[in-house]
Computed example of a mutant assay.
Amino acid sequence: MRWIANLRAKNRLPLVQVVKTSVATILAWVIAQMLLPTALPIFAAIAALLVVQPSINQSVGKAVERSLGVIGGVLVALGIGLLFGQSTWIVLLTIVLCILLAWALRLTPGSSNQIPISAMLVLAIGANTPNYALDRIIETVLGAAIALVVNLLIVPPVLLGPAHESITLLAEEVAQTLERVATALRVPQSEAALQELMITARLLRPMLVASDKAVTEAEESLTLNPRQAKPREQLATDKALLSRLRSLVTRTIGMTRALRDHYDDALHLEPTVQAFSLELERAVHDLRLLARDTESTVASDRGRQEELALTAPLRIATPHPQHWILIGSLMEDLRRVREEILGE
Rank of each mutant, 00 (worst) to 15 (best):
Leu13Thr: 14
Leu15Cys: 10
Val19Arg: 08
Thr21Ala: 14
Thr21Met: 13
Ser22Glu: 04
Ala24Phe: 07
Thr25Pro: 03
Leu27Glu: 00
Pro37Val: 08
Ala39Ile: 07
Phe43Met: 14
Ala44His: 08
Ile46His: 03
Ala48Ile: 02
Leu49Thr: 08
Val51Asn: 11
Val52Tyr: 01
Gln58Asp: 06
Ser59Ala: 12
Val60Thr: 08
Gly61His: 06
Glu65Asp: 15
Glu65Trp: 05
Leu68Lys: 09
Leu75Ala: 10
Val76Gly: 00
Leu78Thr: 09
Ile80Asn: 01
Gly81Phe: 11
Leu82Ala: 14
Leu82Arg: 15
Gly85Tyr: 07
Ile90His: 00
Ile99Met: 15
Ala104Gln: 15
Leu105Gln: 10
Leu105Asn: 03
Leu107Ala: 11
Leu107His: 06
Pro109Ile: 09
Ser112Pro: 00
Ser112Cys: 06
Asn113Cys: 04
Ile117Ala: 12
Met120Gly: 13
Thr129Glu: 13
Asn131Ala: 13
Asn131Tyr: 11
Val141Met: 12
Leu142Asn: 12
Ala147Ile: 03
Val149Gln: 10
Val150Ser: 01
Leu152Trp: 12
Pro156Thr: 10
Val158Ala: 13
Val158Trp: 03
Leu160Phe: 00
Pro162Trp: 07
Pro162Glu: 02
Ala163Phe: 02
Ile167Tyr: 10
Leu170Cys: 01
Ala171Asp: 06
Val181Thr: 04
Val181Leu: 14
Thr183Ser: 13
Ala184Thr: 03
Leu185Pro: 02
Leu185Trp: 01
Arg186Trp: 02
Val187Ile: 14
Gln189Cys: 09
Leu194Ser: 11
Glu196Cys: 06
Leu197Ala: 01
Met198Ala: 15
Met198Gln: 14
Thr200Asn: 14
Thr200Tyr: 05
Ala201Asn: 04
Arg202Met: 06
Met207Val: 03
Met207Gly: 00
Met207Cys: 07
Val215Cys: 11
Thr216Pro: 00
Glu219Leu: 15
Glu220Met: 10
Asn225Cys: 02
Gln228Cys: 10
Ala229Gly: 11
Lys230Pro: 08
Thr237Gly: 14
Ser243Ala: 15
Ser243Val: 00
Arg246Tyr: 00
Val249Leu: 05
Val249Asn: 03
Thr250Phe: 01
Gly254Arg: 13
Ala258Leu: 11
Asp261Arg: 14
His262Tyr: 14
Asp265Glu: 14
Ala266Phe: 04
Ala275Gln: 14
Glu279Cys: 02
Leu287Pro: 07
Arg288His: 04
Arg302Gly: 09
Gly303Ile: 05
Gln305Cys: 07
Glu306Cys: 10
Glu307Thr: 13
Leu308Gln: 13
Thr311Asp: 09
Thr311Phe: 05
Thr318Glu: 02
Gln322Ile: 05
Leu326Pro: 00
Leu334Thr: 08
Ile341Tyr: 02
Gly343Phe: 04
Gly343Cys: 04
